Amino acid sequence: MTLLTSAAGTWQLQRYPVRSHDTLQAWEAADELLHELIVERDDQRPLLINDQWGALLMPFAGLDVASQSDSYVSHCGWRHNLELNQLPDTLTALAPLESLPDDRDVVYLKIPKSLSLLEFQLAKLAAELPAGTPIFAAAKSKLLTPAVRDLFAQYCETIEVSLIRRKCRTIRAITRSIALDQARFMSSWEVPEFNLTLHHHAGVFARNQLDIGARFMLDNMPPTGAEQVIDLGCGNGVLGLYYARLSPNSEVTFVDESYLAIASTHRNIVSNLPASQLSQYDFHVDDCLAHRASESADLILCNPPFHQEHAVTEHIARQMFRDSRRVLRKNGELWVVANRHLPYYQPLKRLFKSVHQIAQNSKFVIFQARG
């Protein structure tokens, strides 16, 4: 499950964080098709985009390679797999809002699940790289929709789409030169019933409307007064933001593995809370609560994801629960809102002394876990 052998070489490749008996593979056929293109060329300064665990990085280890991803966990995975394979770390790791190096001789791009994120990435390539820079992109065939092809046509030239191989396709193109309108990729909308204005960068979860699970939690918030609060997997930050409004003396930390989510949350805090309170709030990209001190929080709010790009998985939620138990102080509480069909009660019960159902409706349930 961890030995990647392709046209470009052989490496051990693991998902991150490493889990025993992991049934999910750290690469896919689209990565292997890009490896075939890599061996046809002699690229010295590649730019990689959306390389989830380092499958695209491995052939370029030791070169002047840059890699950009919105996922902090992917950034950790790149370093982990370089070390696992005893390869030199010459990588420049980039968050999505950072400027791209303008000396790249090629771009290799895995097409993301989010159409808005793809457009933002193509727009940055067109704005920040020299016109004519070659792009090689790949994804499962079902993801190469007419909308995706239209985006490539808008920001690129000389577009060639391959035939289907192993249920995947590749796209060859070269960049146009188009100025970047950064504001175009920030969406904003009102939530009048909670007196909120929410702003979202491209690719952030629930970018166009309030998530219905989050809405259910907003209607059933924990009691106010907790001193140290964490909004774990915060997304746009709406849970922690609303708690901060209800409990203005609380200190709230917002944590997500998405750089764009944290940037959106910061914007939402500044837009919705008094300037006099802003020093009470912290923002961190992290792998769940890996860098948070033990016994340092009184309340954790969590609307856990059950997708990781295209994979459906419960392991992120379970990691959030384990980290929450470590981070909570004595008598601290974890409040979780989740789809009713997700089997979260038993994992919570194994970790916490008491687990109570606070509220439920036809789609969601809210659990309070303590001890």
Rank of each mutant, 00 (worst) to 15 (best):
residue 152 F to H: 11
residue 250 S to N: 09
residue 6 S to E: 12
residue 299 L to Q: 01
residue 203 G to M: 01
residue 206 A to Y: 05
residue 255 V to P: 06
residue 323 D to A: 10
residue 248 P to V: 04
residue 27 W to K: 04
residue 205 F to T: 14
residue 260 L to E: 10
residue 209 Q to N: 12
residue 16 Y to Q: 09
residue 37 L to G: 01
residue 83 E to L: 11
residue 128 E to W: 01
residue 166 R to D: 06
residue 28 E to F: 14
residue 34 L to M: 13
residue 48 L to N: 06
residue 47 L to Y: 02
residue 36 E to V: 06
residue 267 R to P: 03
residue 88 P to R: 07
residue 272 N to G: 08
residue 138 A to P: 05
residue 171 I to M: 10
residue 77 G to I: 05
residue 121 Q to G: 01
residue 131 A to I: 08
residue 176 R to F: 02
residue 232 L to Q: 01
residue 109 L to A: 08
residue 367 F to K: 00
residue 122 L to R: 11
residue 308 Q to A: 14
residue 269 I to N: 05
residue 312 V to R: 15
residue 80 H to D: 03
residue 34 L to I: 15
residue 226 A to W: 13
residue 147 A to G: 12
residue 130 P to V: 04
residue 27 W to F: 11
residue 145 T to V: 04
residue 108 Y to F: 15
residue 94 L to H: 03
residue 299 L to P: 04
residue 77 G to L: 06
residue 164 I to C: 09
residue 313 T to G: 10
residue 26 A to R: 12
residue 171 I to F: 02
residue 346 Q to H: 09
residue 261 A to K: 08
residue 106 V to H: 08
residue 153 A to T: 07
residue 61 A to R: 13
residue 120 F to N: 08
residue 143 L to Q: 14
residue 12 Q to N: 14
residue 97 L to D: 11
residue 275 A to N: 11
residue 73 V to E: 10
residue 299 L to K: 00
residue 235 G to T: 03
residue 218 L to R: 13
residue 172 R to F: 07
residue 246 L to I: 01
residue 342 L to Q: 02
residue 369 A to N: 00
residue 153 A to S: 12
residue 325 R to V: 05
residue 334 L to H: 00
residue 223 P to N: 13
residue 51 D to V: 07
residue 74 S to I: 04
residue 335 W to H: 00
residue 110 K to P: 06
residue 142 K to R: 15
residue 55 A to K: 08
residue 356 H to G: 04
residue 21 H to L: 13
residue 138 A to Y: 08
residue 179 A to D: 14
residue 213 G to D: 00
residue 19 R to W: 05
residue 59 P to N: 01
residue 35 H to I: 13
residue 314 E to D: 15
residue 151 L to Y: 04
residue 117 L to R: 12
residue 249 N to M: 08
residue 256 D to G: 09
residue 341 H to T: 12
residue 7 A to G: 06
residue 309 E to V: 05
residue 73 V to L: 10
residue 54 G to T: 05
residue 128 E to L: 06
residue 32 E to S: 15
residue 26 A to I: 08
residue 21 H to C: 06
residue 359 A to Y: 00
residue 253 T to Y: 03
residue 303 N to P: 12
residue 115 L to K: 15
residue 163 L to G: 15
residue 111 I to W: 04
residue 129 L to M: 10
residue 33 L to S: 05
residue 231 D to Q: 01
residue 184 R to T: 04
residue 102 D to M: 10
residue 343 P to K: 01
residue 283 F to Q: 04
residue 267 R to G: 02
residue 281 Y to R: 02
residue 228 Q to C: 08
residue 8 A to K: 08
residue 4 L to A: 03
residue 164 I to F: 04
residue 115 L to E: 12
residue 351 L to P: 02
residue 29 A to P: 09
residue 207 R to Y: 02
residue 84 L to T: 13
residue 200 H to I: 11
residue 49 I to Y: 00
residue 316 I to N: 09
residue 258 S to N: 09
residue 350 R to Y: 03
residue 285 V to H: 12
residue 50 N to H: 13
residue 321 F to Q: 03
residue 95 A to C: 10
residue 20 S to D: 13
residue 231 D to M: 01
residue 297 A to N: 11
residue 201 H to Y: 14
residue 221 M to N: 05
residue 349 K to M: 07
residue 279 S to D: 15
residue 100 L to E: 06
residue 224 T to D: 09
residue 236 N to V: 03
residue 267 R to A: 10
residue 153 A to R: 14
